[in-house]
């Protein structure tokens, strides 16, 4: 039995779930960001798998753009984190209550 599309989608879904748990349960912004990267990569895996089993290459192009934009997004996000850390000396979500009513 060879690995079918559902196997790859299963791995992708599990990885996405792991990332979601990380984002929801971690209190540190950097660790949440790491989990977010995990979710992004899980989505890429699903796209590449669909692409392979449909015999096109459009999904691979989409993943290529995802990787590029993710790199830009990580740079901006980490710059925001550094700026925040300079101002408030913290990277814990519990300490960031400026917008709380």
């Amino acid at each position: 039995m060879t690995a079918g599309l559902e196997h790859y989608l299963g791995v992708s879904a599990l990885l996405f779930g792991l990332g979601l748990v990380g984002v929801l349960l971690r209190g540190n912004l950097i660790l949440m960001y790491l989990s977010l990267e995990l979710m992004l990569n899980a989505a890429s895996l699903a796209l590449v798998a669909f692409d392979r089993f449909n015999g096109t290459r459009n999904g691979q192009i989409l993943v290529f753009f995802i990787i590029t934009v993710a790199a830009a997004e990580v740079a901006v996000g980490l710059a925001l984190l550094v700026a925040l850390y300079r101002k408030r000396q913290t990277a814990q979500v519990e300490d960031l209550t400026g917008m709380k009513l």
Binding site: R52, F64, I67
Partner: peptide, 14 residues
Amino acid sequence: LEAYFLAAVQVLVS
């Protein structure tokens, strides 16, 4: 999944 180019990009960029 025979996405060789993406595998290389994934290693280099991500």
